[in-house]
């Protein structure tokens, strides 16, 4: 037994879904770009303060570059791969900032000892942006998976 669906209602639903997907892409990109901007802002000081190995500031710049790339990918493509990349970047950055807040891990390989047992505005804002970016990217990834293997969300 089938329920008749009016064409207009279906079109409205699709339009709403497309708008939602575009908003999701924009918000994910904003979160990642916020994170990137804060890391670029903090990088010079942290590089001077901890130049051992690759240097903390250089790691910040690396993270910022990858986050900006993920933001662009989500914004321009909105594909499953783009969301998966964004999720990986945001989640790893969030895990790193929380980990080094609480765990005094000594330097290893090219990574300096980055233990910093404080929260302050910029650091908190970047952690919130990373966490929000990860959640948004996960939602985007789930929606893109549901939309089908070849379909990009928001198109």
């Amino acid at each position: 037994m089938s329920v008749p669906i009016r064409r207009g209602a279906l079109a409205r639903g699709r339009g709403r879904g497309r708008g939602l997907d575009l908003a999701l892409r924009a918000l994910t990109a904003v979160a990642l770009l916020t994170d990137a901007g804060i890391h670029i802002h903090l990088a010079p000081g942290y590089q001077a303060g901890l130049p051992q190995g690759i240097g903390q500031g250089n790691l910040f710049l690396l993270e910022a570059g990858v986050a900006a790339l993920a933001a662009l990918a989500v914004l321009l493509r909105g594909s499953r791969a783009a969301y998966a990349f964004a999720l990986l970047v945001a989640l790893s950055a969030f895990a790193a900032v929380v980990f080094y807040r609480y765990v005094d891990l000594p330097a290893f390989g090219p990574f300096p000892a980055m233990y910093e047992p404080v929260w302050y505005f910029e650091k908190t804002a970047s952690a919130v942006a990373e966490g929000a970016g990860a959640v948004l990217a996960a939602i985007g990834l789930a929606r893109a998976r549901r939309a089908g293997p070849a379909r990009r969300v928001g198109r």
Binding site: Y120, F121, V128, A129
Partner: peptide, 8 residues
């Protein structure tokens, strides 16, 4: 979160 007041 983006609108939080500075906490420094």
């Amino acid at each position: 979160a983006a609108g939080c007041a500075p906490g420094g």
